[in-house]
């Protein structure tokens, strides 16, 4: 079967030519075991040699929610809606936001973090950020369970949550998680690609993600911003930024389907989906372009 003259017999070719999008799904599928093993590695090594271990998964969002409730609701007096405990409101926002920011932070230094391993052996580089997103999904799952626990506590054991109930939109939950993952992954891949040669962007990511949280309706309802803009207390462009920030849509959506607060529209959902897919594809293109030669410039 191996006639030497036939060029079509080659299994693959290594060349400097870069096609715009070159995602070899067959190859990724071949390396699926590696993907899962990376996830396993992330999960089992994260809390090694800690006493509380995975309990840290719970502690971080709980404490953040407590502080947010104290600062934004008790001190700054932001209303989260009648019959919706502000603690639960904040916890919902933080749980969702945490997943996005963990995906973004985790993938944004893929190339720099893994230059050792990437410099030695080849496997589809995209496996690395994908594994980050997957292992964060487990973390998100645990935090979501925590959220459910508190939800049950507030609804059944206290009387402050008389207006809190999930809506039928809960069927959209997987889509919401997908959008968050795609957004985080897409931005993360872009940033990681752009920081291989010029590291300037890394400085931005550190505090940028944190600042973005304030622009994503995590600790306030979007309706509050809309009110402030119409009252003229907030510049229009700030309002527009928050309103069209896809993460705002996601957080609002997440709270709407779990707590029944905030606004929800199909057009917003479509908008967020489209943006996340575009960001993801763009990230993939940039990532693919970079992965071939980054080891020379990192």
């Amino acid at each position: 079967m191996n006639t030497p003259s036939e060029d079509s017999n080659w299994l693959y070719t290594i060349s400097p030519k870069k096609s715009v999008i070159n995602l070899n799904f067959k190859e990724i599928w071949y390396y699926r075991d590696l993907l899962l093993l990376f996830v396993k590695r992330d999960v089992i090594t994260l809390y090694k040699q800690t006493i509380l271990g995975p309990l840290w998964y719970f502690i971080q969002p709980l404490f953040t929610s407590v502080i947010f409730t104290l600062v934004f609701n008790n001190i700054a007096d932001i209303k989260t809606g009648n019959g919706v405990p502000s603690f639960l409101f904040n916890l919902a926002g933080i749980t969702a936001w945490n997943y996005f920011s963990a995906c973004l932070n985790g993938t944004s230094d893929t190339f720099k973090q893994n230059q050792g391993i990437f410099g030695k052996v080849y496997f589809p580089r995209v496996i690395m950020p994908m594994s980050t997103v997957l292992s964060n999904l487990i973390k998100f799952g645990i935090q979501f369970l925590v959220f459910i626990c508190f939800y049950i506590y507030f609804v059944f054991f206290t009387d402050v949550a008389f207006n809190t109930f999930p809506t039928v939109g809960i069927i959209w939950l997987p889509l919401v998680v997908f959008i968050m993952a795609f957004l985080g992954l897409g931005f993360g891949m872009m940033i990681s690609s752009m920081t291989t040669k010029y590291r300037d962007l890394t400085f931005l990511v550190g505090f940028g993600v944190q600042l973005l949280m304030y622009g994503s309706a995590v600790m306030y309802p979007l309706s509050l911003i809309q009110d402030k803009v119409s009252q003229g207390k907030l510049p229009d462009w700030v309002g527009a930024f928050i309103e069209y920030n896809p993460m705002t849509t996601i957080i609002e959506l997440f709270r709407h389907i779990t707590l029944g607060v905030g606004t929800f529209s199909v057009s917003k959902l479509v908008y967020a989906t489209l943006v996340s897919i575009m960001v993801f594809l763009l990230g993939l293109i940039v990532f693919n372009k970079t992965e071939k030669t980054f080891i020379d410039t990192v």
Partner: peptide
């Protein structure tokens, strides 16, 4: 081993390459 790509030229292979760099 596809860790980096060449500036010019081509490598064709009929088998999977694994490296112990």
């Amino acid at each position: 081993s596809k860790v980096t790509s060449p500036t010019t030229g081509e490598i064709k292979t009929k088998g999977r390459i694994a490296s112990l760099l």
